[in-house]
């Protein structure tokens, strides 16, 4: 006998098929990445505490191998879901308006929101480059040594195009989150007249802090403050 009640897996696929389900997937993967970049930034800032502190922190993170791989797999899944869903949502939007307007008259200034797909694509390129550069050392603009992030950063951020690409990417990350860290709450329906304006401020503050917090490291190396 066939039952009309959908099974658990069926529910998940049905859920993801509709665009609201895709938005929830965007928000959930987005919040994982958001949490991660905050921790990541806190890690990076230890460069100002000196070579020993930062290199010891990196080695401590790598000491627990199972935990390291769990974190990597969760992040990879989050990026994969976020990337794939983001691209498919952007594609659906294009298809929904096959004939474009000849005259544009935007009312609501929203640079961050409107460039989500663009900032996202640059971030995707950045993530690939960043892993090949400072995790695996496959791309070596400067000499690379495993698990010595202090030395690796100092050596490669002296190369101006590399430092420039990092600063540009983290500024775009700030822009992406200026909209994203607010809209993820709306996507899952966390909305209340009292808290929604506060969430806007929350997103703006974190976007700004992240852009600054990540940028100061390459800038400090470039200006010779960290050597």
């Amino acid at each position: 006998m066939s039952s009309t009640a959908p099974a658990a897996t069926q529910r998940i696929t049905l859920f993801y098929q509709d665009y609201v389900g895709k938005k929830v997937a965007m928000a959930l993967s987005g919040v994982v990445l958001f949490g991660y970049v905050i921790i990541h930034m806190a890690g990076n800032l230890q460069i100002f505490a000196g070579r020993e502190q930062l290199n010891a922190y990196a080695q401590a993170l790598h000491a627990n191998v199972p935990l390291l791989w769990i974190a990597r797999i969760v992040l990879l899944l989050a990026v994969g879901i976020h990337f794939y869903t983001g691209i498919s949502l952007a594609g659906a939007s294009r298809a929904a308006r096959p004939v474009r307007y000849q005259v544009k008259g935007q009312r609501h200034p929203n640079l961050a929101g409107r460039t989500m797909a663009l900032s996202g694509l640059v971030l995707a390129a950045f993530i690939v480059f960043h892993i090949l550069h400072l995790t695996t050392g496959t791309v070596q603009p400067a000499p690379f040594a495993d698990l010595r992030p202090y030395d690796n950063m100092v050596n490669s951020f002296r190369v101006i195009p590399v430092a420039g690409f990092y600063v540009l990417s983290v500024c775009l990350l700030g822009l992406h989150l200026y909209h994203g860290a607010w809209s993820m709450f709306q996507s899952v329906g966390f909305n209340h007249p009292r808290y929604t304006p506060a969430l806007r401020r929350f997103a703006a503050v974190f976007a700004f802090l992240l852009a600054i917090g990540f940028s100061v490291v390459p800038i400090a190396v470039l200006t010779g403050m960290v050597r």
């Binding site: 929203n110 989500m116 607010w182 996507s187």
Partner: peptide
């Protein structure tokens, strides 16, 4: 299309 909460 889907909603990106632009607010337009």
């Amino acid at each position: 299309g889907g909603c990106t909460l632009f607010g337009e």
